[in-house]
């Protein structure tokens, strides 16, 4: 690990003032950043520790929740309000990593964690356009079982590994940012960028911009939500595919539905066209299969992940059937 300067931000303005320096990064609990620094993939000259900033979970005026970016993943998962009103979020967080890591990891850090593509991690021995733009990607013709099928490009097929973000996307979460240029709010589903020919640019965050909180809008009344994760071992493994879904059925028709996919794309992947096709439909296999078809219509695969469209398709249908069954 390259030597770096460490400081602890005492307030949000303090963090933003320090975070504007060259080669400076904000540090949450470090569960991903410290690992990447050890691998030499990240080489910041300075770290500004923001774990001392707000980690509170509070009700908003419009019936939602405001979660401080420094809240631990455990704190969010265990929050009584989240368990009751956003159960898919609790389930998503609890399906990720391990208890130890969830106790450490912050909400802000979870959102900004980087892909686990093993070629990305192999600084010395492999090519990666995300690390060194333009040098090529060894994953495309290499081991790509965990890689993406939606939103990927010829330059990068890496996935965003978060479970939490998939659920946040399904709940239309908003990310509150603060930076040298002021404050702004970005929908979580728009925070991460697709790789295109610049896979090194992963989010819309401006230099020095800090995630200060995540806002959950009021949960749809009478909606059901859940999260299902499919992986190569029973626990403590990244998703091959995952689905977060919210479903509200009224008078035998789908009144509202949101579907977000994990493990298949460079970002938490909302399937708005599939959702649109479902609204007004009778819940059931026919509609769910069609929605899954739509959600996966743009999928591209490599030999290692050729199973993912089918696996994702089945998982989407199963999750929607579960929610529809529970709604009856």
């Amino acid at each position: 690990m390259r030597p770096f300067a460490y400081s602890k931000a005492t307030s949000e303005p303090d963090a933003i003032a320090r975070g504007g320096e060259t080669a400076t990064k904000f540090l949450g609990a470090g569960t991903n950043l410290v690992d990447l620094m050890r691998e030499g993939v990240e080489v910041p000259a300075a770290l500004v520790d923001v774990t001392g900033l707000s980690g509170s979970i509070e009700e908003t005026d419009n019936g939602g929740l405001m979660i401080g970016a420094a809240a631990s993943n455990t704190a969010v998962a265990e929050s009584a309000a989240v368990r009751e009103r956003y159960p898919a979020l609790t389930r998503a967080i609890l399906s990720g990593a391990s208890a130890q890591i969830r106790n450490m990891a912050t909400v802000g850090g979870n959102i900004l964690q980087r892909t686990r593509c093993t070629y990305f991690y192999d600084l010395e021995g492999s090519r990666c356009n995300k690390r060194r733009p333009g040098e090529g990607c060894d994953a495309i013709d290499g081991f790509n079982r965990g890689h993406g099928i939606l939103g990927v490009s010829q330059d990068c097929i890496a996935t965003h590994p978060s479970d939490m973000c998939v659920a946040l996307a399904a709940f239309d979460a908003l990310v509150h940012l603060a930076g040298p240029g002021g404050r702004r709010i970005v929908p979580l589903a728009d925070l991460h960028r697709l790789p295109g020919d610049t896979p090194d640019v992963e989010t819309v965050l401006a230099p020095g911009e800090l995630i200060t909180s995540v806002e959950l809008p009021a949960a749809p009344v009478d909606a059901r939500s859940t999260y299902r994760k499919v992986r190569d071992r029973a626990s403590y493994a990244f998703a091959l595919v995952s689905v977060a879904a919210v479903l509200r059925v009224t008078d035998g028709r789908i009144a509202e539905v949101r579907i977000a996919l994990g493990g298949v794309a460079p970002k938490p992947w909302r399937t708005r066209e599939a959702e649109d096709a479902l609204v007004g439909a009778t819940p059931g296999e026919t509609a769910f299969v069609r929605a899954a078809d739509i959600a996966l219509s743009g999928a591209t695969t490599r030999p290692g992940n050729a199973f993912k469209p089918e696996l994702m398709h089945r998982t989407i249908v199963a999750v929607l059937q579960d929610l529809a069954g529970a709604s009856e």
């Binding site: 690992d35 520790d49 890591i101």
Partner: peptide, 10 residues
């Protein structure tokens, strides 16, 4: 927590 991922300074 995991001590390996924890910078002591924090």
């Amino acid at each position: 927590i995991l001590a390996c991922l924890a910078l002591a300074a924090q």
